[in-house]
Write a protein that binds this DNA or RNA. Structure first.
Lengths: 204, 204
DNA sequence: ATATGATTTAACCAGATGGTTAAAGATATA
DNA sequence: TATATCTTTAACCATCTGGTTAAATCATAT
């Protein structure tokens, strides 16, 4: 067998599908466009992935996994909370900066097929409870303000994700369509978000 | 002319279209489904709105306008900054609580047709500069921390909007699919977001 | 050399979709 | 009653879309 060829084509298809699906979503994407993008024809596309649904699920699962990186390691380590949160925010926004279209893709698709979403999440084995417990210990220790740990987690995710998900909107409304200005603004978010969060919750 | 009947049908269509478009987006919506939802037939639908595109644009513009309420009045008033921001956050989250699907709809569509988005925004006459200037004055007066006013605005919008836009995801991941629990959590967001923001920026 | 899998070509299909049309009813107004 | 508008019915069309198929070609490992 020509494994190399097979791998290469499958990879080409997955890359093409990711490009198209991320830009246009499941509903807005066309199999023909994915085939074109991959430099192959539609027949071969179906030869590898029988249906659009299967191809989409492969992409969604892949992107979704990348969107929730392994944060357990250092979030549950012995670092001071300030450093833990700082590291997480930095890593997370860096991840999004490397994949700026992930947020809008994920947000677009999570409401389309909740059952499939549940499947993907469960196969992930994400367990935020440990992190919530860690937050609560820090509160009891008097290191951070008392609050619902879920509020804290959601606020951090929100501030990290939203400026990318709403990019076209914010770009026009707040940056006069100056894309360079907005991009350099986004690069600074690692620091500004960190500052905003720590200023809000840290007890000095 | 039977203006009443006309108005009524047009309204029925707009309501139906809003329901369907908001749930499924432009690409995922079908004219037949909108007709069914309005209790009329497809021919009449095209009699009122010639094309799907025109109907969608009507809905998007309407929803978009509602999503950016008149905040100028009190944001530029003589209230202390604490009260201004508190009022805005309360009003804004209340608005979303009344229309919980607006955020995901707007986010879904803003990246689909940026030119149309620009048109809608411009027809809105939104001018955030006055509010940014107000923020800057408050910073100079030493009432709030120094920061880019756009960061502040974006953070508030992010924390208000994100938990609704990512509802299915958060609901599964953080609330074990307990919808009631998540809904009552969302109702508290008016207070928790306000607290989070003010704790971060206020200089006491 | 041949068998096997990868790839292309090209035609095809069924169903859905947006949109049109014509004719007939219904309804209100003048 | 006559007129104009609103509404339905139902058939129809062109196009697109996902998906299939069969035959031919290409590449490669044995």
């Amino acid at each position: 067998m020509s494994d190399k060829k097979k791998d290469n084509t499958e990879e080409k298809i997955l890359n093409a599908a990711q490009t198209v699906f991320i830009k246009k979503g499941m509903d807005g994407s066309r199999m023909q466009e994915i085939a074109d993008q991959a430099g192959i024809n539609k027949a071969l596309l179906h030869y590898y992935f029988r249906t659009k649904q299967k191809l989409f699920e492969a992409i969604f699962a892949k992107v979704f996994k990348q969107t929730f990186p392994n944060i357990g390691k250092f979030m549950l380590s012995e670092m001071p909370i300030e450093e833990k949160l700082g590291t997480f925010i930095e890593k997370y926004i860096s991840l999004i900066l490397r994949n700026p279209f992930y947020p809008s893709f994920i947000l677009k698709e999570i409401s389309r097929d909740p059952e499939f979403l549940a499947t993907v999440i469960k196969s992930q084995g994400v367990n935020p409870n440990e992190i919530f417990e860690m937050f609560e210990k820090e509160m009891e220790a008097g290191n951070i303000r008392r609050m619902d740990p879920r509020d804290l987690m959601i606020n951090i995710l929100a501030m990290s994700v939203f400026p990318f998900a709403a990019k076209p909107l914010i770009n026009i409304m707040f940056f006069g369509n100056d894309k360079k200005a907005y991009n350099s603004f986004l690069k600074k978010r690692k620091d500004t978000v960190k500052e905003f969060v720590l200023n809000s919750i840290l007890i000095k």
